[in-house]
Design a protein around this nucleic acid. Structure first.
Lengths: 209, 209
DNA sequence: TTTTTTCTACTGGTTTTTAGGTATTTTCTA
DNA sequence: TAGAAAATACCTAAAAACCAGTAGAAAAAA
């Protein structure tokens, strides 16, 4: 079996060097490059085959998220492992949504790194222990103030998210526009937001849309 | 080591029976119950300890998503594995966001099921092969019509999602409200939506917020 | 340095939302 | 079956959003 052609992308040269040293004795992979920004990485990918990318999310020129998407769009066979210090749930979830095969914190052990690499190239998705902890603990915000919505309110919320006006909605449900208005106002009250725009954002954050 | 106390929740009794039969020879787990709706499950959980739940997302009384959240809020030690036929990316991602430890399609092999259970109780998150495939392929929709936003537009989009009015935004950026209005209109055009509410929804779907 | 894009700002008019309420009927549910 | 919750509907008036344009200055790209 060929060695995994691996590149490291991080804006701290020290991290790149550290990883190179840590991984140089692994007999199943070979570090073929280290880059400190997204542009360098992309230009390398265009000229050379790469199996695995260890990617930091904070880069000087481009967000890791976008980069992730771009790489996956062009080089879908390449596996991406995120290596980051961000402990926010939403960021972790986003990287996976954008095609990453795993997420590790930078203080992960070499063992964890090894294991995740192994899983990732097998096609699985893998997180380090702490990351799983973050993912599985429900955001306090999320569960605490999730308003209890009635059936009608849910229906109307969903149509509002489709850009419908009160009149449109009223027609769909054979209601008076004034009624829809009332529901809309109750929604805004329940979510404690200022207007429909913020309402949609809040509803989205709480997975209600 | 004690056997894993496992319950199965599915609205098709046949599936419950099938799983019971398949898993009855596993020596590390014991099926202690099978339920066909969410209410039954919750009432059982309130009286009995359960380590693992094999959960279908489509139930007659309550959505699997909500159920997942509720279980995790009350019984955080219980591991949830989703067993479903839905192949939509968004649904899969949501279950994980709601605290599930994995996702399997119902046509998964017994081996995959075994492996996922093992991973899940170890605290990892695990998907069957097909599911990983679904997750890693970028939604065509998502990449295709993601509009290219300018710096200002991004800033304004984000404030709109916070329920700010054009005047508020104008003040924050020392601009004329009319200018903000223009940007807002350009955003609505670029996203091909009808108003700000739909704009926020669209932006959210494309991970721009 | 020219060209293009982005940012800025305006006019004028229409539609919709938002904020303050009130009130009746229907539907759960205890 | 009584009481609570939900759904329905209305009024008024101000505020904000939306539509359809135009156009100069600044910044970035070619």
């Amino acid at each position: 079996m060929n060695k995994l052609l691996t590149v490291i992308v991080d804006d701290h040269p020290i991290v790149i060097e550290g990883l190179k040293t840590l991984l140089k004795n692994e007999d199943n992979l070979e570090i073929v490059g280290g880059f400190s920004n997204g542009a360098q990485l992309l230009s390398y990918l265009n000229r050379n085959p790469v199996d695995l990318i260890l990617l930091d999310v904070t880069l000087p020129d481009i967000g890791g998220m976008e980069l992730c998407q771009m790489i996956k769009a062009q080089f879908s066979a390449t596996t991406i492992l995120i290596l980051s210090n961000h402990t926010e749930r939403s960021i972790i979830m986003q990287t996976i949504q954008n095609g990453a095969s795993g997420y590790l914190l930078k203080n992960s052990s070499l063992d964890e790194l090894r294991q995740c690499i192994a899983e990732a190239v097998k096609g699985n998705i893998c997180y380090s222990k702490e990351v799983v902890e973050i993912i599985s603990r429900p955001t306090k915000n999320q569960l605490r103030n999730t308003p209890q919505l009635t059936r009608r309110e849910k229906q109307i919320l969903s149509l509002l998210a489709q850009g419908k006006t009160s009149q449109n909605i009223a027609q769909e449900f054979f209601l008076s526009p004034l009624t829809v208005d009332t529901h809309r106002r109750n929604l805004i009250q329940k979510f404690e937001v200022k207007n429909v725009a913020e309402l949609i954002a809040a509803a989205h954050q709480q997975q209600l849309l």
